[in-house]
Design a protein around this nucleic acid. Structure first.
Length: 206
DNA sequence: CAACCGATCACCT
DNA sequence: GGTGATCGGTTGC
């Protein structure tokens, strides 16, 4: 299903996170585990900017934790949150300029059985939309489903042909896009920087 | 070096 | 609708 998919180009990410976020909707996150291929379509993202965006990790300046956000575009920024979950971002803008896009939800495309196992939900009925929704409808859930962790994946180049974590396009075009405030933050909460595919079943709960 | 707290989720009422 | 779990990065004493 993702055989015809192509890696995105570096230039795609060498732009403002708000533009990248919007255009990432409908693209694929692909995880390769040996012969297995797990993939999901991006249905919900948030843009995080530089110094003026107080919700962004980059707002505190360059540290060991957030270094990837200040690095070259197209790399995975993975951080650990609430002592429980990982979250996946992709860096934007040229090295030296901070910016990234948080991947908040995926519509499962392939490897659903493996995703369910990784989520500790081996008994799911994967023909039911209600059960499929449990796999990756949130930033922590999608990382668990794809086995994304900071030790394993932080700073990984997601545009390399030999990477086991990639962003690709299969030509799918997102239909209607809705823009809202970001979720779960207090600072700079008024900014309209969350982008979702309208009506999509797999976005995180509102 | 101790304290604080967060870009979440699941389970409870 | 409310909250506990659980950890590391960051900050303040």
């Amino acid at each position: 299903m993702t055989n015809e998919a192509k890696l995105l180009r570096r230039a795609f990410f060498n732009r403002d996170p708000r533009v990248v976020a919007r255009e990432l909707l409908g693209k694929l996150i692909v995880r390769r585990e040996g012969r297995e291929q797990l993939a999901g379509r991006i249905v919900e993202v948030e843009a995080y900017l530089g110094a003026g965006d107080l919700a962004a990790h980059a707002a505190a300046g360059h540290t060991a934790r957030n270094a990837v956000v200040f690095g070259p575009p197209g790399h995975a920024y993975v951080y650990f949150i609430y002592g429980v979950h990982y979250c996946l971002n992709i860096s934007c803008l040229p090295a030296g300029e901070a910016g990234c896009v948080l991947i908040r939800a995926l519509e499962p495309v392939s490897g659903m059985r493996e995703m369910a196992n990784a989520r500790g939900l081996a008994g799911l009925e994967l023909t039911l939309p209600r059960d499929l929704r449990k796999l990756a409808s949130g930033p922590g859930k999608l990382c668990e489903a794809l086995g994304i962790t900071r030790p394993r994946d932080n700073d990984k180049d997601m545009l390399s042909a030999k990477s086991d974590l990639q962003v690709m396009s299969d030509g799918f075009r997102a239909s209607e896009i809705a823009v809202t405030q970001r979720i779960g933050i207090t600072k700079s909460a008024e900014l309209p920087l969350r982008y979702v595919i309208a009506q999509n079943l797999f976005v995180s709960k509102k």
